[in-house]
């Protein structure tokens, strides 16, 4: 992985696309999380903190596709697109055959509603897409596939991630100054 990663990082500014197809079972998700972490660490300029954040984003997108989008025995597709020095994108596709399958507009409306009206703190569900994925991405888009199912696309720009880190550091430094004073 490291050799491949180094060659991807050194070679060009062209986008690098990696596609993984998985059966609809959560048993493979720890491997996908490990892959996401390695990919971000070794082939992008995102920080360690963002590598862990994207691990959660990808996990939540896949869990949603497995739980709602595709029935057992079918597949989901995960696409990683690394735009070097610019951004990272994740796309997760389901087949639309799951029992609780929804159209793109329905799921987008639910996410929008949940993120605008904060999920009650003691509520059991509803934090995956509306909090973790939405908070840690710049673009979150749901699209219906012509043959059934949806594609969820998430994009995060490197510039914005770095700006947020700087803001966080300044805020922490500000707190320390306040304590010292």
């Amino acid at each position: 992985m490291n050799d491949i990663a180094t060659s991807i990082k050194d070679n060009s500014d062209k986008p690098v696309k990696i596609t993984i197809t998985l059966p609809t079972t959560a048993y493979f998700m720890s491997g996908i999380r490990d892959f996401t972490l390695s990919l971000i660490r070794n082939t992008t300029d995102f920080s360690e903190q963002w590598a862990y954040r994207f691990q959660s984003v990808v996990d939540e997108l896949c869990n949603n596709a497995i739980e709602h989008g595709s029935r057992p025995g079918e597949e989901i597709k995960i696409v990683f697109i690394n735009n070097p020095s610019d951004s990272i994108e994740f796309l997760v596709e389901d087949s639309g055959t799951g029992e609780k399958s929804m159209k793109a507009a329905e799921i987008a409306a639910i996410v929008e509603k949940s993120s605008n009206n904060d999920v009650p703190l003691t509520e059991l569900r509803g934090r995956g897409l509306s909090k973790i994925v939405k908070e840690w991405s710049d673009e979150l888009e749901f699209k219906d596939k012509p043959d059934g199912g949806i594609i969820v696309r998430v994009k995060k720009s490197l510039k914005d991630a770095k700006a947020k880190e700087l803001k966080q550091e300044l805020s922490l430094a500000g707190d320390q100054t306040h304590i010292v004073v």
Binding site: S30, R33, Q55, S56, D59, E60, N63, L121, T122, E123, L124, R125, G126, R127, G128, K131, I132
Partner: peptide, 16 residues
């Protein structure tokens, strides 16, 4: 090492 949104949901339910 890792917790997903469902495990956070359980945490809030136990707390309640």
């Amino acid at each position: 090492e890792y917790m997903n949104s469902k495990s956070i949901g359980y945490l809030t339910d136990w707390y309640g």
